[in-house]
Nucleic acid binder design. Structure first.
Lengths: 339, 339
DNA sequence: ATGAAAGCGCTAACAG
DNA sequence: CTGTTAGCGCTTTCAT
């Protein structure tokens, strides 16, 4: 924990007997420096324990090499996968992710976006398409590519890489109806902050009505993140208030698994007595007994597509706003009953 | 996606009819600016859509307001909790987390640390106490507080907030032995990169030997992150090769849950025929049927303590290196058999 | 409470 | 392939 001032390029230049500019070039990939000079500089740098100072580089070159990313929660496998996809795609270009989480709150998101923009990122990726007015304005005026993900906003700010949460649930409803089920319930999506959850519930209600079915079997699960525990509690309420329910769609695999455990503790057979579906294709759903019927929204692919889009936009001249749809896939497994 | 140059403090100064220095002061909390002047400046800033440029501020003030953090994986609830604890603790002081993940690879960690140090963080928090020689050197010479977490390294680089993975498992072994179990197995901890997993397995072997028991019931689970699936596969091998095993300790709750599902699919009763314990107190363990006996290492508390330590060290004058132990707690639940 | 001058460490731009 | 000059946008420092 020494505290003397760290060495600069000027220090290296002195030791290596060259100009600071040559030192600067020696640290760039493509720069034209003779091999001998470069080696001498690298050696001098190691000898004096030099560490490149991005701060100065960023200011002078007006490039931060940051891509800002906001996700609702850091503790969520789906969003983590999207960040991994982003990170992998951006790494080759030396872009680093500056990550922040919003706790599923658009006001917190607004604060976060402002914080992140101060770091002058090259682009910003946000989760969801609903923002405060001020956040929208900040993003619009940022002068950098903006990418909204995990949604298909009606009025996008810039680019979009996402899918319709409502449509995905509609497919699940159709699946259950095709099985002959009529009394279908939905758990979650009742809280303000959870726009994706709300969209899923809205999609459920619309799909049920379109099928001419009763769309009032809705069980609240509280504010996101919806835990397994909350899924279990919601299932307890469902079984008590609407015991004749034939199938239930949960806002996520985590709540679906919680719901499943509640059935197990009560001796309610899944899927024989009640079928369960989740959302998100979390690992738990593939391995639980019974395994969970769910929807895979391809979170990693969303991140990978967003990364590729960023690279394209930063390279090429300004094109129009792009909308990339990553279509979710129904995964029919044990908890959903016969195919 | 406009691309004209963003406004600077000089622009605000011109509009508000003051000097750039006054603008700078108006954006600081404690600075001495008259209320009227400040309001005029804030208004001018909003009018022209000014966004503060940290990049320039950082360079001039030699303060980045970053704390660098490395974790093995972004997709892990335990490490996510530690990051949340850190983040919450650092937020009040306006410190932002610059997060990177190592994929459980100390060479990747070395690259990452170098990347992060270029951003000139105020402090750096790393997960684990094993690093490449070069990474150690980088950290030692960084001239900032270094905090190793999730471990109790023999030769710490700087500060430590962690616990002994080996001792925690020793307690679990003692618990099973106290129940009269003798044939105890361990799943995981066989891979190079997973230092915490290896420490846990080492602790298992040492504890078994100390009890005079056979410490050879070791099942490999592959490279981290150890998934639920890998836990299930390992349990399959255990049941086939050592069917008389009475209890198994898994390297994490995720593999433990996988192991549990394998038993369920085979009709092997847990805990009657074989008891299962995990590590980490993930949510799955509290809700699965049966619930999982496990060890809570208090991940959020590790982060909170690390944050508090950073604030103390950055404030006060250089004290000696601190070692904070966050003692893990045994959670006896259904999968572990009678208490 | 406000301003003027200088400079943080690097690199764009230009020169050779 | 290498050097010189200037300056990125802010804030430290010193004045007033």
């Amino acid at each position: 924990m020494q505290s003397r001032k760290p060495p600069t390029m000027a220090d290296i230049a002195r030791v290596a007997g060259v100009s600071p500019m040559t030192v600067s070039r020696a640290f760039k990939r493509d720069a034209s420096v003779s091999a001998a000079t470069r080696n001498a500089i690298i050696k001098a740098a190691e000898d004096i324990g030099y560490v490149f100072d991005s701060t100065a580089s960023n200011l002078r070159s007006q490039r931060s090499d940051f891509v800002a990313v906001t996700i609702p929660s850091i503790n969520n496998a789906n969003f983590a996968d999207t960040v991994r996809g982003l990170s992998e795609g951006l790494k080759e270009r030396g872009l680093q992710i500056l990550l922040g989480y919003t706790d599923y709150d658009i006001h917190e998101e607004e604060r976060l976006i402002e914080q992140l923009l101060r770091r002058r990122p090259e682009a910003i990726v946000v989760t969801g398409g609903r923002h405060t007015d001020r956040a929208r304005r900040l993003l619009q005026n940022a002068g950098i590519p903006v990418i909204e993900t995990w949604d298909l906003p009606k009025d996008p700010i810039g680019h979009v890489v996402g899918f319709s949460n409502a449509d995905a649930v509609k497919d699940m409803v159709a699946h259950f109806v095709g099985q002959g089920k009529r009394k279908i319930a939905f758990i979650g999506g009742d809280a303000d902050g959870d726009t994706r959850g709300t969209d899923r519930r809205t999609g459920f209600v619309a799909a049920m009505k379109a099928q001419g079915l009763d769309a009032t079997r809705l069980i609240a699960a509280g504010r996101p993140p919806i835990s397994m525990r909350e899924g279990a509690d919601a299932m307890a309420r469902l079984l008590e208030t609407m015991p004749d329910t034939e199938a239930v769609i949960c806002v996520s695999d985590l709540s679906a698994f919680g719901a499943l455990t509640e059935c197990q503790r009560r001796g309610v057979s899944v899927p024989a007595r009640i079928a369960i579906a989740g959302f998100g294709d979390y690992e738990i759903g593939a391995i639980s007994v019974p395994s969970l019927t769910t929807i895979n929204p391809f979170p990693h692919e969303i991140g990978a597509q967003a990364a590729a889009l960023i690279l394209r936009v930063l390279d090429g001249p300004a094109q129009g706003a792009t909308v990339i749809t990553v279509k979710p896939e129904l995964l029919l497994r044990e908890s959903g009953g016969q195919r």
